[in-house]
Design a binder for these strands. Structure first.
Length: 831
RNA sequence: GCCGCGGUGGUGGAAUUGGUAGACACGCCAGACUCAAAAUCUUGUGAGCAUUAGCUCGUACCGGUUCAAGUCCGGUCCGCGGUACCA
């Protein structure tokens, strides 16, 4: 008998698929329904992929493979996230240029991904660092700029000393850089932003309706962080200045006993009286210098300084002190807050420490009787003629009053900030603008793109908050034509003609997330050098039917939604959301329960697993079987061998069928085989549809076990039912284990591939059996099982009397008080 | 702190959404084949008491609803993820 040797057959079929272009898609072929699915693009690093990544890429492979088999024109593309810090840092480490390091690492990725048998359309592979790609990233920048969604602003931003660049809010995790893990500090720089906040409301509103993993939706909603509240303006005592604060609790306005300004607030220094000037200025500088980590390590001990100035509480008319404290954040609301110590924990702590007045304005419910601070809602007190109102009502009344006095208004705040895209690093898409002397900042016109990133020898950060591009004289210093936006190196001298001016290129590069926010659209026109993508193709293929990944729940997925919405409004795309289904899957952890990482030395290399003789299919099946997609797998060294056993049994069964000489099979056995098969087809089909890959695998295992049972008593023959069972099983197994199924499919005499247009159909008629098990309970306890003929299931009297007979001894001579009967399922006798 | 998710055998995990708890797999035990081992095949495998049936207990803990609860409700404890001085 032919033996199952994965290594031989896997390589053979991979070569064949490549030759035949089995997974190459004609994007203009609309004769079949479309299916567009893929996983988050791999970020290139030196380590290549580990078994954890493999699991992620496999989910989309199975979804797309199943659809391809079900008659869809199914497109499973692949791209490389090539720009950004990880590649540049890796290049520095190995002493090569980012381009060299990237190209080399990419080869390894391709080798691994091909070996794992993913059904990518390799003919349409793209890379974000390719000028033919980032040309269009720059083009998108221009479109955003044109529509006032890109702007430059001087402001304090997160800065990573180690990586020598600013970072977006989404890239700071717990006060640390997402790449190197070192604490970040604030640095005041002129930076480029994309105005994602303009889309805050619509992104938030659309989130609920997304068919995405709920966790990601919740994270995005929290990140956008909408708060309904009000702005209230306080007059500064003895001055024309005013301070506007944001509050979500206008109902507590009567309890506002002091104001707090963020250290960065524009009035902070100005309001400070001369007697305390030294103190206050020192505090402001200290706050600016502190990293976020340091602020957090202060265990939230409140700090602050009194400015010497006072404001007037507009409802009480009282003079209240104005303080500066770093618990007020410059970047949220107005950078100033009204402190209501009786009803806010932080204000309370601050007031206690600095001995500031505390005034109760909300009555406590009984459960909170006597507490010094109560942050809940309730009935107002000490609040003039608003006394006795409930918070909800008082909020509206007070805001209405403030509006009448023109010192306040209803206001919504969001926690989300604009997307900071400037990076002071070399390896990224240049921001396509030129600072023209005397003429401001001018974008390079669409037809002059791309602005090519120059190849340089020494690309390492030099410090000083500018990218090394600033030192590339021939690139950065240019003659710029104001009419055409053409550029010529300054050193070549001023060209002939009008309107040439001296200028300097922008030396910041774009955040890597910009490059990955639209690659799914480029998949639809990967080699088009006349447009970023074809709207017509997008109309047919969009939106993405299936997308998955184990990372970037907020940043990448929110940025992509923002851009897609922008494209949609511009008439560049026909759908407002990019991803119809986004499945957020979990990682594979190492056997020690920790994340796999090279430094910990606990990485399981898929190549090693495959080379040890098990091949790709066993590994693939294991990663699907071990747990539901959204649950982490702790790598079990015994897992893959177990799956090999299952595949080997499938193999053996098929070989025995091929070697059988008779066609004998009893009707009963035939019926049994068909029942198993139809059940399996139905369950696996719906499980794949519902992303329940683990139970899909166990269903197929049950089928093989069931067929083995029949084999045990009847043997395997060349009977039609055996053929149907094996062919069906191979077809539903094919998305999980593409190689072995292709081999056996071919052994069964097929000359075409199993992977295109082959999916079995089930017939419900086979799923109804002649008899059914009815369980009999007494007082809810299982006491007997009855095999009833199908036609008795509707006969209540008969079923009940049968049930009673069987459990009579459990009744202790009592008469049944009540009998519950669920047809075809159970009888419960209550005594 | 706040928000979200979860707690089922020795282990990973099933359970038709209120109706046979532990599917499937790993591990382990025994048997067959073998000079022997591996591989393969066949049993058994929640705990306890009886070992022929059989009975009792059992889905983190306490309580409730129901003929019936892993599933629903209230409370407690623990774990994971996100977020964090967001006014």
């Amino acid at each position: 008998m032919k033996r199952y040797n994965p290594i031989d057959i896997e390589q053979k079929w991979q070569e064949k698929w490549e030759q035949d272009g089995t997974y190459v898609v004609d994007l203009d072929d609309h004769s079949k329904p479309k299916y567009f699915g893929f996983s988050m693009l791999p970020g290139i690093t030196g380590a290549g992929i580990h078994t954890g990544h493999g699991r992620t890429y496999q989910f989309s492979d199975i979804k797309v493979r199943a659809k391809r088999q079900q008659g869809y024109n199914a497109y499973h593309p692949i791209a490389w996230d090539s720009f950004g810090l990880p590649v540049e840092n890796y290049a520095i480490k190995i002493g090569k240029t980012p381009r060299e390091a990237h190209d080399e690492a990419k080869k390894n990725f391709i080798r691994q991904l091909k070996r794992l048998g993913y059904s990518y359309d390799w003919s349409k592979e793209i890379s974000t660092a390719d000028p033919s790609y980032y040309k269009w990233t720059q083009w998108i920048f221009n479109q955003l700029l044109k529509n006032d969604l890109a702007y430059q602003k001087q402001s304090p931003q997160w800065w990573c000393e180690t990586d020598q660049t600013v970072l977006a809010n989404e890239q700071v995790e717990g006060g640390r850089c997402w790449r190197c893990g070192n604490p970040v500090v604030k640095k005041n720089l002129k930076q480029w932003f994309f105005k994602i906040t303009e889309y805050a409301e619509e992104l938030l509103e659309a989130t609920d309706d997304l068919n995405w993993t709920e966790r990601v939706k919740t994270m995005q909603k929290n990140w956008i962080g909408k708060s309904q509240g009000a702005e209230v303006t306080f007059a500064v005592d003895g001055s024309d200045e005013q301070i506007t604060v944001f509050t979500t609790r206008p109902d507590t306005l009567f309890g506002a006993t002091f104001l707090v300004l963020a250290p960065e607030h524009e009035l902070a220094k100005q309001l400070t009286t001369s007697d305390v000037r030294g103190n206050v200025f020192a505090y402001i500088e200290e706050a600016a210098r502190k990293s976020e980590i340091e602020r957090m390590n202060d265990t939230r001990e409140k700090t602050g300084v009194f400015t010497g100035a006072h404001a007037i509480n507009p409802v009480t008319g009282e003079k209240i002190q104005i303080w500066i404290a770093d618990y007020a954040l410059a970047s949220y609301g107005t950078g100033a807050l009204m402190a209501v110590p009786a009803h806010d924990e932080r204000d309370f702590a601050f007031a206690e420490k600095f001995n500031l007045p505390i005034v109760n304005v909300i009555e406590r419910p009984e459960s909170d009787e006597g507490t010094a601070m109560y942050h809940g809602e309730g009935v107002l007190t000490n609040s003039g003629h608003f006394d006795g109102m409930r918070s909800e009502e008082a909020r509206e009344e007070i805001v209405t009053w403030l509006e009448q006095q023109q010192i306040g208004k209803s206001k919504i705040s969001y926690k989300m900030r604009d997307w900071l895209i400037s990076r002071q690093r070399y390896w990224g898409a240049p921001i396509p603008v030129v600072h023209v002397h005397g003429h401001g900042t001018i974008p390079v016109a669409d037809d002059q793109l791309p602005v090519i990133l120059p190849e340089v020898e020494d690309y390492k950060p030099k410090g000083g908050a500018v990218s090394v591009l600033a030192g590339v004289e021939d690139w950065v210093h240019v003659w710029f034509n104001l009419d055409t936006t053409e550029t010529v190196p300054f050193s070549q001298g001023k060209p002939e003609g009008d309107n040439w001016h001296e200028g300097h290129r922008e030396t910041d590069t774009m955040d890597g997330y910009a490059c990955s926010s639209w690659y799914f659209l480029r998949y639809l026109s990967p080699f088009d050098d006349t447009q970023a993508w074809s709207l017509e193709t997008e109309k047919h293929w969009g939106p993405v039917d299936f997308y998955n990944g184990a990372d970037h729940a907020v940043a990448h997925l929110l940025y992509s939604r923002f851009w897609q919405r922008f494209f949609y409004k511009q008439g560049l795309a026909s759908h407002p959301e990019p991803f119809d289904r986004m499945m957020y899957n979990a990682y594979v952890l190492a056997s020690d329960g920790q994340k796999m990482s090279k430094s910990k030395g606990n990485v399981v290399d898929p190549m090693v697993v495959m080379d040890s003789g098990y091949g790709a299919d066993s590994l693939r099946v294991y990663e699907m079987f071990a747990a539901p997609y959204d649950q982490e797998i702790i790598w079990d060294p015994n897992g893959v061998p177990g799956m090999y056993r299952f595949l080997n049994r499938t193999w053996t069964l098929t070989q025995e069928y091929l070697e059988a000489t008779s066609t004998d099979l009893s009707d009963e056995a035939s019926r049994e085989i068909l029942t198993i098969t139809h059940k399996t087809i139905k369950k696996v089909t719906s499980d794949i549809q519902d992303d329940k890959f683990n139970t899909a695998v166990s269903t197929m295992m049950e089928a093989v076990n069931g067929l083995y049972k029949i084999k045990e008593t009847n043997g395997v023959s060349q009977h039609e039912s055996w053929k149907f069972a094996l062919e069906s099983l191979l077809q539903v197994l094919a998305p999980f284990a593409p190689h072995i199924t292709e081999e056996l499919w071919s052994d069964l005499g097929h000359t075409d591939t199993i992977h295109v247009d082959h999916w079995p159909k089930w017939d419900d008629a086979y799923l109804v059996s002649d008899s059914m098990t009815v369980i009999v309970q007494v007082n809810g306890k299982l006491r007997a099982k009855l095999e009833l003929a199908n036609d008795t299931s509707e006969d209540e009297v008969k079923a009940q009397s049968l049930a009673l007979e069987n459990v009579i001894k459990f009744l202790d001579g009592n008469e049944p008080k009540k009998v519950i009967y669920i047809p075809g399922r159970l009888v419960n006798i209550v005594v």
